[in-house]
Design a protein around this nucleic acid. Structure first.
Length: 896
RNA sequence: GGGCGCUUAGCUCAGCGGUAGAGCGCCUGUCUUACACACAGGAUGUCGCAGGUUCGAUCCCUGCAGCGCCCACCA
């Protein structure tokens, strides 16, 4: 006997182990089956499973299980990402608690710590993925820094370099002063900051008492100013162009240049130019051949080396400036402003709110810094990727995300890929003492190249920098399959079928996989990109620790089971929508899991299990035909929904069929048969009950793997194998399905109408009365007779028969099709209430009829609307009018 | 500043050219031998606003408003 309720905590680990033991998740490159590939977006090794993972992984698992059941050779490729900055940060913090500092211990020792840490806690995310039920092909698990993937990274780096698509350049980068590394544009986020706009007076050379006033939000960078720019058309400053001003404090002469970058509307229209600390100024500096002295170091502290020579007491204050050496940028700002105020060189200070770029991980303002870095020529690599989406080789779902993709790709900037970190793929570049660079697969290869170049042995030093984490992630779709080796996996599983991810990493990851995949594999990395929303709380707010609204998927699984959580996620996963997840919803959906469980208990109680030799195409009872027809439709709906990535519709279709058809009606209709005598009918009903239950388990397995697999085994389905490897259901031809549908639909409406009338009349369930049919056709009478037992049970009737003679006094009446059904309830009901009820029904029918009649009275409608629409309206009008007539008759009977 | 999306029942959302739907919540009954994580019944909407196209608009077009997001922006 099945337990009273399903116990996920006991069942889930057992089944997961069973699947793993059976090798149920394994792809088979040797099989002839058509592949279906999903590459997991590799979670950070530092990570633990959060609700966003639960969403994306549930979706992927649903897809992979479904396709696997369809007979595809499904590969869901697992793995994790080394996550450069994030991991280094975590380990550094850990070491700090032990009083250790990476700089003191050195690179090698630090990396040893990171690897140790990874060995200890790196597996937690993969253990947590198992709890979700994720059917990943674990033996194929990869790590972005394992040997094979590192080889791929070097191969790509060297190749791109040889092709001129990867190069070193000295230009401004986004510098994160906390992590002391360059970061890419994507790792920078704008934050609104309330600051000030300082208007500074720069004395005009040779014209004592005249000042050129510049407005700035960053007075501390003035030390590095090498010009002031004004707009060529700006009459206010025309006479100053070509002349010089004296940079206060520093005492350096700097030119006034005319440059269209200067906006007369902004600030004072004159803008100080600090080429080494501002992206726009850098461009201006290039155009005017300006010097580009850096005045802030890697810590964002003042450094004077590059301007020391220009310090002058004539118009400057060298002692003050020298004292700034090593001072933090914000402290320097305060001091410089204070000093300029003393010198009466501050015209005014306005409050000013503006967007300031911050490091997305460090949270501090980034500092544009002039450094030598490695860049990928993204512009060139982007072109084939853009074309691939334009031509539909890769399709985004929902489609609108293609616009986002195009917008970014068409304006893509060089990708800075070097990072001044230790944890990551060290750049395969070696420098000779003269600075000559040798990019090679190995030190030996670099040394060989150097020997050829110099004609002798030279000492090479490897570039200490590592690559952006996304550089290796970009290769994920092929590096995990063994590239650059020509493996059977690579041949079979590339390109992948679908990539599932959130819109937040379209740029970071999707775009870059497209670029690298097309360049190195000459084909897109995936045919479809399914973009889902973000998980938010039930009020639609982003989940965050500070708001305290974070939901822990593992806690939800503990509380309600993985199936309930997965089903909830699927049901909320509509197109282009964020997923607003509340704890209550998961709890509600646990009821659905329980509903399935209880249906199973009912079957068990009636001795129903997996039917042997049951042939759905040969059933004879209308009940069997009807439920099989319903199952066919559910199969079609679920399949279509999954094909369209409509997880919400898939969940809804499954729910509707199980709860609304199988449980609410089929089981109820089956009860009289099951309680009745043994025979052909009973055998068939038991058979179809078991058969359709099996269909339900198969249909729901992709989203609710555990409860379905458990019941599959308990009911003896598929003795040869687990549900996970069972075929996805397909529609079977059902004989005379239409007739069965008409018949059962009639019974359902009869029962519903009678229940409605009884309920509205407040007839207690304990009161049972005969149902007297008036005006029933022969077919209806036959149905009433055939289904009398079910009708009696469901509509609380003593009998169902033709009204013989005049109607009794005090009846409640309902109209079902051509028949008026009378319930003799003289003692129980209030006649006035019954009259009101009938009048209301008549009113509804009349409103309906009037609307349709008006439409049909419009000659334009009849002339221009489609023929079948007109015809349909005529039929509806006739039906409404007939119903009004019957209700009128019913009212007349009561009046009399 | 540029772009995208959303606005439908109290809540969360489907629908997107021809009778406004679901789940939850609410109200009324019921422990009816699978299930109270349940059963039965009921109420609830000028489908954001204003125009237009159409025989017909929640659905298509235009404008407006509100909300959300992405990109750009340190004068």
């Amino acid at each position: 006997m099945l337990d009273k309720t399903f116990d996920p905590a006991a069942v889930e680990p057992r089944l997961y182990q069973l699947w793993e033991r059976e090798g149920a998740f394994a792809a088979n490159p040797a099989s002839a089956a058509r592949p279906f590939t999903i590459m997991i977006p590799p979670p950070n090794v530092t990570g633990s499973l959060h609700i966003g993972h639960a969403l994306t992984m549930s979706v992927q698992d649903t897809l992979i299980r479904w396709r696997r059941m369809q007979g595809r050779d499904a590969l869901w490729q697992p793995g994790t990402d080394h996550a450069g900055i994030a991991t280094q940060m975590v380990v550094e913090r850990l070491l700090a608690t032990q009083g250790l500092d990476r700089r003191e211990m050195g690179r090698e020792a630090f990396l040893k710590h990171v690897w140790e840490w990874k060995a200890q806690s790196g597996g937690s995310i993969t253990r947590q993925l198992r709890r979700l039920g994720a059917s990943l092909d674990w033996p194929r698990e990869r790590f972005t820094m394992d040997e094979g993937l590192s080889k791929a990274v070097i191969q790509v780096f060297v190749t791109l370099h040889r092709e001129g698509l990867l190069y070193r350049d000295r230009r401004l980068v986004n510098w994160d002063p906390v992590f002391q590394t360059a970061i890419s544009d994507l790792e920078v986020e704008s934050r609104e900051v309330k600051g000030s706009l300082w208007h500074l007076r720069y004395p005009v050379e040779g014209e004592p008492g005249r000042f050129l006033v510049v407005a700035t939000t960053r007075p501390e960078t003035m030390l590095g100013d090498t010009a002031v720019a004004v707009h060529p058309e700006d009459d206010r400053y025309k006479d100053l162009v070509g002349r010089h001003v004296i940079l206060p404090l520093v005492g350096r002469r700097i030119p006034v240049v005319a440059d269209p970058y200067s906006d007369p509307e902004k600030g004072t229209g004159a803008v100080k130019i600090t080429p080494a600390h501002d992206f726009n100024d850098f461009e201006v500096g290039r155009r005017h051949n300006l010097a580009m002295p850096s005045v802030l170091d890697a810590d964002a502290k003042v450094i004077l080396a590059e301007i020391a020579a220009g310090l002058s007491a004539d118009g400057g204050d060298p002692d003050f400036v020298r004292a700034l050496e090593g001072v933090d940028r914000f402290e320097a700002r305060k001091r410089i402003v204070a000093r300029l105020q003393e010198l009466e060189l501050v015209e005014k200070i306005e409050p000013h709110t503006h967007a300031v770029p911050h490091g997305d991980r460090s949270g501090v303002p980034i500092e544009p810094r002039l450094t030598m870095q490695w860049y990928v020529d993204a512009k060139t690599l982007a072109q084939p990727a853009i074309r691939a989406v334009e031509t539909g080789q890769t399709v985004f779902v929902p489609r609108q995300w293609e616009n986002t993709f195009f917008a970014w790709m068409r304006d893509i900037q060089p990708w800075c890929v070097s990072r001044q970190l230790w944890w990551g793929h060290q750049i395969p570049a070696w420098y000779a003492p003269d600075g000559e660079v040798f990019v090679a697969h190995s030190e030996a290869e670099a040394a060989e190249a150097a020997r050829r170049k110099f004609g002798r042995e030279v000492t090479l030093v490897r570039d200490p920098d590592v690559l952006d984490t996304w550089f290796s992630s970009a290769l994920w779709p092929f590096s995990t399959l063994g590239w650059p080796e020509k493996t059977p996996e690579l041949a079979k599983y590339y390109p992948g079928d679908v990539l599932v991810t959130g819109f937040d990493i379209i740029f970071f990851w999707v775009a870059r996989m497209m670029m690298m995949g097309l360049h190195f594999m000459q084909d897109v990395p995936f045919r479809t990109v399914y973009i889902h929303g973000l998980v938010r709380d039930e009020k639609g707010q982003k989940m965050s620790k500070s708001k305290g609204n974070v939901m822990d998927p593992l806690e939800l699984i503990d509380a309600f089971g993985a199936d309930a959580m997965r089903f909830t996620i699927a049901s909320l996963c509509g197109p282009g929508r964020d997923v607003k997840l509340g704890r209550k919803r998961v709890e509600d959906n646990r009821a659905f899991v329980t509903k399935i469980w209880n249906a199973a208990r009912f079957l068990e109680m009636n001795g129903i299990s997996a039917p042997q030799g049951f042939d759905p195409s040969k059933v004879e009872t209308p009940l069997a035909r009807w439920i099989l027809d319903g199952a066919n439709r559910a199969i079609a709906e679920c399949t279509a929904a999954l094909e369209a990535y409509r997880f919400d519709e898939y969940a809804a279709a499954g729910y509707r069929f199980v709860w609304g058809s199988y449980c609410d009606w089929f089981i109820e209709f089956a009860k009289p048969v099951l309680n009745g005598p043994d025979g052909a009918e009973k055998t068939e009903v038991k058979g179809v009950a078991g058969h359709v239950f099996g269909t339900i388990l198969r249909l729901l397995h992709p989203v609710m793997p555990y409860v379905t697999e458990e019941l599959w085994h308990l009911f003896g389905f598929g003795p040869e194998g687990s549900l996970i490897r069972t075929a996805w259901p397909e529609a079977v031809p059902v004989p005379e399905a239409e007739a069965a549908r008409v018949e059962l639909d009639w019974v359902v409406s009869l029962v519903s109408e009678v229940r409605g009338a009884r309920s509205e009349m407040n007839v207690p369930p304990s009161v049972t009365v005969p149902l007297l049919l008036q005006g029933a056709s022969a077919a209806t009478l036959a149905r009433a007779d055939a289904w009398s037992e079910a009708i009696r049970r469901l509509a609380r009737a003593t009998e169902v028969r033709m009204l013989g003679g005049p109607p009794p006094k005090g009846v409640a009446q309902v109209v079902v099709g051509e028949t008026t059904v009378m319930l003799p309830l003289a003692d129980v009901i209030d006649l006035a209430a019954e009259r009101a009820r009938l009048a209301k029904a008549r009113g509804a029918a009349e409103t309906d009829a009037k609307k349709i009649a008006a439409k049909l009275a419009n000659p334009d409608f009849v002339a221009r609307a489609k023929e079948e629409v007109v015809e349909e309206n005529r039929e509806r009008l006739a039906a409404a009018e007939a119903e009004i007539a019957r209700l009128d008759a019913a009212l007349a009977r009561i009046a009399g």
